[in-house]
Every structure is written in structure tokens, then in C-alpha cells.
Amino acid sequence: MNEILLETRQLKKYFQTPRGLLHAVDDVNLQFRRGKTLGVVGESGCGKSTLGRTILKLLEPTSGEILYKGTDIAGYGRRDTKRMRQHMQMIFQDPYASLDPRMTVREIISEPIYINKTMTDRREIEKKVGQLMETVGLAARLSNAYPHELDGGRRQRIGIAKALALEPEFIVCDEPVSALDVSIQAQILNLMLDLQEELGLTYMFVTHDLSVVKMISDEIAVMYLGKCVERAPSQELFSHPYHPYTKALLSAIPVPDLSCRGKKREVLKGEVVSPIDPAPGCRFALRCRHCTERCTQGPVELLEVAPGHMAACCRWSEL
């Protein structure tokens, strides 16, 4: 049941910029268990979307391994990558921009099938598109509609249907609900949970919305400036955060309760430091009030602080 479907080992993605090397993803180790959801949270620019794209090989990893069912796909060439994409798909953040405005719903959903030639008979493809639309809750009469004629929720359903067209096992969801109205977010999240149960999908759920990630994830990884700073099962992370950054992040969740008004929040000082040529040591050190000399010297490794709970803080036992 807890078989590992996909794993990243020391995965790195650096970008060459005029001002130096940008460490977007730095030594990230994650395990994705079959049929489970791993939520990846972090603030804007922490590399969570880049991580998702690198795992799908939409970006070429700088170094490290991506093990899919035990085989390293990081070094795969074009043809092998294309083959891999049939098993690994992506749901995009913005359902307005990620659908070609000149294609009808039917064309969009069937595009992956035509490209990968998983089916060749037109009638069969038509039938498949009909099934997919039904699965994601789109009325059949919409098959000739254009994306601009539909609302955000329906467009995101198209995006999901397109991702499902190749019957993948693993789906990277890049903030799939952040562009939607709150009322529609829940519908889409429920649809994704239903699909997971029905089809045994494995999700990597990238988001900055902690309440969303709590609802959908089995396990959560917290990222800060390209590093994974804490990783734990969902409940565990929310009840016993170890890393100071995670604590600050959790205390920033708005609580819709008047009695909590006076509650002190942990407010972070300073700005995120630049991910270009970062200093050695803990990347959070400059903003951390528990920072000591030790934090800025050597690299800080992700350690198991409790069963199944990893944190990258050298003072975790004291705090």
C-alpha cells in the first residue's frame, strides 16, 4: 500500500542568471507514495513550481535523480521523456491561460491522445473524450464550446480531463485552485479527491494555501528558498511543527474566530534573501529569531526528529 511510486534524490535545478547562479531547487529529497498526496507548500519564489516542472522534465534538472518505479528518468532523452509523460501529467494553475483559445473543449481533451497515439480510431477517441468529460463533470453539450465561453471551474475541469486523457499514475497539480473562486475551489478539490480514490492517482500538490493543503494532503513538505525544510504526515505537521519557518507559516493561517483575536502571531522579520548564490548554512537563518552561529556555518541536513517526521534545523531538540 505504501509503495513508493516516485522519488527524488538530491534533485537540483539551478538557473544561470546575469547576477549569478539561482538555486531554485536545491538537494530536494521527496518520496511519493502510490495513491497518496504529497503537498508542497512555501511562499512565492521558493521553488515549489519549479520542483514540479523539474520532476515532469519540463525543465531539465541540473543534477540529482528522479526515480520513477525505481528507474532514474532524470537523464532521459526526448523520446524516453515523451514516453514517461504518459504516466506523469500536470494540472496547471491558471485555467484561463493554459488552454489554447482557438481549440474547442473536445480538441483540447483529445490532444494528448493524438500526440501520443494511444488510440487511433476516431470514434474510439470521441468515446474516450465523452467518458473523460463525464468523469470530470462536464456536460457533453460543451464539447464544441471554446474555453472562453466557460467559467473558471469548468475550465479547470477541462484541464483535469486533459491530464487524465493518457491515464497517468502521477499528476503534478500546480496550484490548481488558486485562480478560482473560493466557492469553486471546494468543488474542484473534491473532484480531485474522488478521482484519486477512483483511479488510484498519486498527486504532488503544489500550493501556498495551507488550508487547502491540509484538506487534500497525506503528507506535507515545506519549502523555503529551494530547500525542503520540513516533511511530515499532514496531521503531525500541523500539530507538532519543528522548524521555526513552519511554525511561523502555520501561525499565519487566518483563524475565523473572534476569540483568537488577541492571540500573538509569530511575525517574520526581514525579506526572503535572494536565491542567487545563497550563503552556506541554513537559508532561513537571517530571519530566524533562534539563529545561532552554528546555523550559518555548515550545511543543515534534513533529520528525522520523530518517526516519519523530518526537519532541517540544527536546534530542533532545544526549541
Binding site: 519540463l58 509523460r85 501529467q89 496547471f92 491561460a97 493554459s98 488552454l99 490532444e111 501520443n116 484541464g159
Partner: peptide, 17 residues
């Protein structure tokens, strides 16, 4: 730079497509 170009790449589309 449109997202749908990346979306096409994600489903395995080549440059010609």
C-alpha cells in the same frame, strides 16, 4: 510564453506540433 504551450509540452508535443 503562453501557458498552453507549456501544457502542450507536458503532454509530449514536439516542436512541429
Amino acid at each position: 510564453n503562453a501557458d498552453y504551450i507549456e501544457a502542450a509540452n507536458a503532454v509530449g508535443a514536439g516542436t512541429a506540433h
